[in-house]
């Protein structure tokens, strides 16, 4: 496992390779508009190595040397291998600031808008889209649908944003419930609410709001102890296996304590943090 922090996955790891933040390494990111932008190192890696160097070291130890001197050499190799990247180099990124792929002989400065004269595949192809309802259905036992999303101040599971002052805006995940559904169940704003699905259960505080429609509840997933995805199902996209995180049949009720899963999670993560601290202390001695 390679990361900045002993995150939730690292707690199951046997080898922890400390990674570095974007401020400590060189490379490129490609955004949602295919824009390749440079990431420039502004400080020395606190762990001693840029992330790509760690992969190269492991590869060498496995008998496959990766003798790159700088991230730019990796991009040169990518550009050689990849038709849509043929024209990309760190030098060109330096000149243009950023480049939207495809960037090659046909489009030396990149391609802001795609499919202008013809589609990449030639002719656009219409596909049949027969509606097949998900097997995750509401019934008397699970009458509500849970769906999930993000909030501005936190980022995904929050490994980074939870370690900043952004927690001022979003210190915990709450479950949004329509006033009608809340009233039916005797739930008041701020109550602990147990959310139970066919897959599991978790407990969050209630936020009673008309943002959600009756029959639908909603939560964010920025805090690992919330366990939003403990209650989502094993369903996934038929073509790519992308999980069906957005549809889960659930029931909610007022409760007075955390779920069994959350208590186990708390215990496990406390143990794991202690196991990391133990070695810290032995190191100091």
């Amino acid at each position: 496992m390679q990361d900045l922090f002993l995150n939730e996955t690292a707690m199951y790891a046997h080898v922890f390779l400390p990674g570095c933040s974007f401020l400590e390494k060189s490379g490129t990111f490609t955004n949602a508009e295919r824009r390749i932008s440079p990431v420039r190192r502004v400080m020395t890696p606190k762990n001693g190595y840029e992330d790509w160097q760690i992969t190269a070291m492991l590869s060498e130890a496995l008998g496959y040397p990766m003798p790159y001197q700088h991230a730019s050499e990796i991009m040169d190799e990518i550009a050689r291998l990849t038709p849509t990247f043929h024209g990309v180099s760190y030098q060109k990124l330096e000149e243009l600031g950023s480049i939207q792929w495809p960037c090659n002989e046909a489009h030396p400065e990149g391609t802001p808008i795609m499919h202008i004269d013809e589609f990449v595949r030639g002719k656009g192809r219409f596909m049949i889209t027969e509606y097949v309802p998900t097997s995750e259905k509401v019934n008397a036992k699970y009458p509500l649908i849970l769906t999930t999303g993000r909030i501005l101040s936190q980022y995904n599971v929050g490994a980074q944003t939870r370690r900043t002052d952004n927690v001022a805006w979003h210190p915990e995940d709450k479950v949004e419930i329509h006033p009608q559904d809340a009233e039916d169940r005797g739930i008041k704003d701020g109550d602990w609410v147990g959310i139970t699905s066919r897959a599991g259960n978790t407990v969050l505080r209630a936020n009673i709001t008309e943002r959600v429609q009756p029959g639908v509840i909603y939560t964010t997933f920025h805090h690992p102890e919330s366990g939003a995805n403990v209650i989502t199902t094993d369903n996934s996209d038929w073509a790519t296996n992308c999980p069906e995180f957005k549809v889960t049949a659930v029931e909610v009720s007022r409760v007075s304590q955390l779920s069994e899963w959350q208590r186990q999670y708390q215990e496990f993560s406390q143990d794991q943090i202690a196991l990391a601290q133990q070695q810290d202390e032995s190191h100091i001695e």
Binding site: L4, F5, L6, F16, P18, K46, Q160, T164, Q279, S282
Partner: peptide, 23 residues
Amino acid sequence: AWGYATHRDRITKPMIRKSIHDA
């Protein structure tokens, strides 16, 4: 929100263990 880069939780030394129940 870039302060995580120097947060005290950051681990900067490699670590190994035989079992996930070991230190």
